[in-house]
Write a protein that binds this DNA or RNA. Structure first.
Lengths: 217, 217
DNA sequence: GCAACTAAGAGAGCGGTGCTCTTGCAATTG
DNA sequence: CAATTGCAAGAGCACCGCTCTCTTAGTTGC
């Protein structure tokens, strides 16, 4: 196996057990039976390795969600929304540290490269497709006022690339739903539901119900 | 000044400039003109120092929000909700790294002590009071079904201590609103709105409008 | 078939980290 | 005055990211 792939694989298992702050190049090297300086031939810095892992995590999550939606193509829009949202959650719970890598506190001075941004839109794209399909099937009565000034605070040109065929009236709620899903997972994974939510599975379904209502699904 | 207070103060300025991962006991000691081992008399470990800072951050945020709500006591419930939510956001934007300390990726193996949990409920308590006041003033028509099985997935006994006089029918939406506010801030502060939201001030107001609608405010 | 080049790891070392343990000093107390 | 206590200093351990030079193994070109 190419060394780069091995390094990333070992790093992922290390992150899975000790968290991202517990990832050290020296330990990766030790695990590989190689001296630490050898790794610098493949990753100039620890942050470069993290960037590669972030990129992979976005794509892994994106692929999982795309797969889930593809399998649910015959379902109703509301069901597809729930299925894909559950796929996001399942991935997050299975890879909590990789989730933290992409949706937790960013490493200081980290600037996402363009390729990462691209990978990060895969989940929103899936949710967007469901919205536009639903809107096409039976249009949801929308408040036209909501579309008037969205270009004042949203990057409509960029959003149109992701929210294809989604009416502008829905942009705010669509962003909210996206945000709510990941906000929920952060709260769940980071322990903010301890003492208030005892069955996150059920609570998540309730949240999905509310979001579906908000989105007219 | 007591050494403990000095250590925390220096730590806070250090965190503000270099982030939480950039906080080192040795640098704190250097800044104080003292040798690093001296600090271990006051904090047995770096994590203990962080725990103290987390506790302070929760209380600082809680006090800010309580103050904002107290000043808005004559306003309508909807306005109070917006004012306190804005206070949360203002605090988060002014103390992004302390925000990360409490709502970002937790340090591995970290377990919040009871005192911290108590401090963490100050914001929810304020939001809850607004809800119960509004419900008292003019009751919001609630779906009684929503109250039926909440004890199946929520810690109703513990929640009743915080959500005082808030009808159970609203528990899910109340938790969602709380979660949405912090989810929004995490997205805003951690750069997930780059490329989609260009004016977070306005977007936040739109989100508050939606949440107010959801809560009947 | 041999020389030249290249890819990849070894090893030493720098300055940094959290943390421990022993030592020394100074103030306070009995 | 003697004893105790509080507090900081200093040395040192094992780890970290990262840099630099050196050696080895393999490949290429003639």
């Amino acid at each position: 196996m190419a060394q780069i792939a091995t390094i990333k694989k070992v790093s992922r298992t290390l992150i899975a057990t000790k968290g991202v702050s517990g990832l050290s190049l020296r330990e990766v090297a030790r695990e590989m039976g190689v001296v630490s300086s050898a790794l610098y031939r493949y990753f100039a810095t620890r942050d470069d390795l993290l960037t590669a892992l972030i990129f992979d995590a976005y794509n892994d999550l994106g692929a999982s969600v795309e797969r889930a939606d593809a399998k649910a193509s015959s379902e109703s829009a509301g069901e597809r929304f729930r299925i894909t949202a559950r796929a996001v959650r399942r991935w997050a719970r299975r890879h909590p540290h990789e989730y933290g890598l992409i949706y937790g506190t960013p490493v200081p001075n980290y600037v996402a490269p363009v390729s990462t941004i691209e990978a990060a839109t895969r989940v929103p794209r899936v949710l967007s497709k469901i919205l536009s399909d639903a809107q096409e099937a039976h249009p949801f009565p929308l408040n036209v006022d909501a579309a008037r000034d969205v270009d004042q605070f949203l990057e409509v040109e960029a959003l149109e690339e992701v929210l294809v065929d989604v009416p502008r009236e829905m942009y705010v709620r669509a962003l909210m739903a996206w945000n709510m899903i990941f906000g929920f997972l952060s709260f769940e994974l980071y322990g903010h539901y301890v003492g208030s939510v005892k069955n996150a599975n059920v609570m998540f379904e309730k949240v999905l119900d509310e979001l579906a209502g908000l989105l007219g699904l």
